Simulated scan of single mutants.
Amino acid sequence: MLVKLFQLLSKLPLFALHLIGSVIGWLVYLLSPSYRRKLKANLRRAGYQGHLSQAIRESGKSMFELPFIWCAPPDKVLRTASIENWELAQAALDAKTGVIFLTPHLGCFEIIAQAIAAKTSLTALYRPPRKAALKPLIEGARARPNLHLAPANLTGVRALLKALKKGHAIGLLPDQVPQNGEGVWADFFGTAAYTMTLSAKLHQMSGAPIILSYAERLPFGRGFVIRFVPFEEELGNTPEQQARAINAAMEKLIARCPSQYIWSYNRYKTPPGVSAPGNANANHQDAP
């Protein structure tokens, strides 16, 4: 049923989906106290509280553009996106070293994997849905030629490393909260956030360069601009230093279009089995 609904919505123009999303974004904000509290708290924590109104609209757009991104014909989807600085990634691919693409929950991050897969083989890490009913949508709708999905477990990590050793590209969401044992506490906008260490480990094991990417959503449904940005932070030697370096890089990306980050994401939760950080500023009330 959900797949059919997404397929039906995918036939609407992107402008219409963004317009509906803007309205629904405000409705959710007004009707859900927990959502409203989390959104405002995360914006305030990062110093972007002045972007509240736009962030509410952009959050709604991010949800209602998914039927188009996932279910519209791939060529139609990619026609809505322009790409900047792809030569940065192509140079790494030409060197046969593999590439580690890091993409935060910023803008239309779902379109980036499709754009990369249209140019080269990409293995993307994803977290399988907990509800079986969502599996056909989350996994099936994302299926594209050259795009391989790797589950967030040991099997998936092996698939990522195998792809890098072949000189191929992989993609991760570095601001996704990892599970117990898969991350460390590192500062993110002034508060400790449990942060994955996988991307730095893969870089160390393979020597593949890290490249940042994000897709800025243009106004009035005009599409997206996908940008590739060099990773310029010093990773350091410890997992904590590496996680902080990656978080710092994410902060700089988010500063480019702060209203388009998904501020409602529970970035500061303490995963089950993980000890709380020794940071008095850490916010654990948002944890489920």
Rank of each mutant, 00 (worst) to 15 (best):
I69E: 13
H168D: 11
Q179E: 02
T123D: 02
A163E: 07
I170H: 02
A72G: 04
K119E: 15
L66H: 10
A16F: 12
I246P: 04
L43S: 07
F188Q: 02
F64C: 13
F64T: 15
K11G: 04
P174Y: 07
A255M: 08
V229Y: 04
L43H: 05
E251T: 01
Q54T: 12
K38W: 01
V157N: 06
L30M: 13
V28W: 11
F220L: 15
N279V: 03
L161F: 12
L125W: 04
R158W: 11
S53C: 10
V28N: 06
L2V: 08
Y214R: 03
T97S: 10
L12Q: 05
G50F: 00
G183T: 00
Y268W: 07
G107W: 00
V28F: 09
K201Q: 12
Q176P: 02
F6C: 14
C108W: 09
I111D: 01
Q285G: 11
A91V: 10
S264K: 03
M1A: 13
F109S: 10
N237H: 14
W70K: 00
K135W: 12
Q90M: 06
E65F: 14
H168S: 10
S199V: 01
W185D: 01
E65Q: 14
R227K: 15
L154V: 15
V274R: 07
A89N: 05
F224Y: 15
E87Y: 14
L253K: 00
L122K: 09
F109A: 07
I211N: 15
G21Y: 03
K162H: 13
A243F: 05
Y35A: 10
V28T: 12
Q285A: 14
I112R: 02
E233W: 04
P288C: 12
L173Y: 03
K61W: 08
L27M: 11
K166C: 00
R79H: 09
L137P: 02
V23I: 15
G190T: 06
W26V: 06
I211Y: 15
P288D: 11
F6V: 09
L161Y: 14
R45S: 08
K96E: 15
E139H: 06
P258R: 01
